[in-house]
């Protein structure tokens, strides 16, 4: 049943760059659908929405979406986004990157942006591996999983990303999987409208590197695993949501609180100290 109509989110994509590089069975395209749906549902002003990515398979999202976007060097998506937000606080800045880029190479930036409560939405597609560079171990690769740099299985302790974000001070922390498309789209739309450092982790299949090495089948088998092993617990304690190799996945919205952002704090502090001499910072004009 071939059609001649245009796909409903084609206007949000750079079609001259299609087909994309993602493998058959990869979940990143699914997250892009959810993101596009969230953009539509939240009626975001597309001229004021900016997307920043680092390097990696997920880093390609910035190149495929027809928004103002920037593809930074490896791990540096958050510092670039911080600068962007501070120079033009009107923008709604979204960082869209992978687990290796955001939490290994850019781990330091991630921690400090959450600590400072910089106003940005960070979407982390967690496929437990470095996809583009050949399946190396990341800080989220579960214990005993095989990677190209861990041929006998990983023996390292792992990061639990919701716990990391929560303990560093993020105001909104959620985790979904590529199976939970409706919930994910709703969660992204909700996170758009909040202020502060918002973090969404999305568990996604990587059939070519993670699953093949660990003999977990193709993308569809991993999606079935996500369906069967996920449990939704909104408001769960982030200390209890760590992931095991092929274990249970707790999903849901874990943290939702309101805190002044870095710019709010800066303006308040300077106002306190300088009084009427201080003119509130509203971006570089």
């Amino acid at each position: 049943m071939t059609t001649t109509q245009a796909h409903p989110i084609e206007y949000l994509l750079r079609m001259d760059r299609m087909p994309h590089i993602w493998c058959p069975g990869c979940g990143i395209g699914v997250t892009v659908n959810c993101f596009a749906r969230a953009l539509q549902d939240s009626k975001a002003d597309l001229d004021k929405t900016v997307i920043v990515s680092g390097i990696g398979c997920t880093g390609r999202v910035a190149g495929y979406l027809k928004l103002d976007s920037f593809h930074t060097t490896h791990g540096r998506a958050i510092p670039f986004a911080t600068g962007l937000k501070l120079a033009n606080p009107e923008l709604n800045v979204v960082v869209y990157s992978g687990d290796g880029d955001l939490t290994a190479i850019g781990g330091n930036h991630f921690i400090h942006a959450a600590r400072r409560n910089i106003d940005m939405l960070v979407i982390c597609v967690n496929n437990f591996t470095y996809g583009m560079t050949g399946g190396q171990l990341t800080p989220t690769t579960p214990y005993s999983a095989v990677a190209s740099t861990a041929p006998y299985g990983s023996f390292e302790k792992t990061f639990s990303l919701p716990f990391l974000a929560d303990s560093c001070g993020a105001v909104y922390v959620a985790r979904w999987t590529t199976f939970h498309v409706r919930q994910l789209a709703r969660c992204m739309a909700e996170a758009f409208t909040k202020r502060g450092f918002r973090f969404i982790e999305i568990i996604s299949p990587c059939p070519t590197l993670y699953q093949r090495r660990n003999k977990l089948g193709d993308g569809l088998s991993f999606m079935k695993y996500l369906k069967e092993s996920s449990e939704c617990k909104d408001g769960a304690d982030t200390r209890a949501v760590a992931l095991d190799f092929q274990g249970k996945i707790i999903v849901g919205k874990f943290v939702d609180r309101d805190q002044p952002t870095w710019l709010d704090d800066m303006n308040r502090r300077y106002r306190e100290k300088l009084g009427d001499k201080y003119e509130e910072y509203k971006g570089i004009k």
Binding site: L13, C26, G29, V30, V32, N33, C34, V181
Partner: peptide
């Protein structure tokens, strides 16, 4: 089963290739 479709658009949400809706 084209008559069974209820226009829920889950296929659109799940398709990583932007190929179905």
């Amino acid at each position: 089963k084209p008559d069974a479709c209820t226009n829920c658009n889950l296929c659109f949400m799940y398709c990583p290739e932007f190929a179905i809706w």
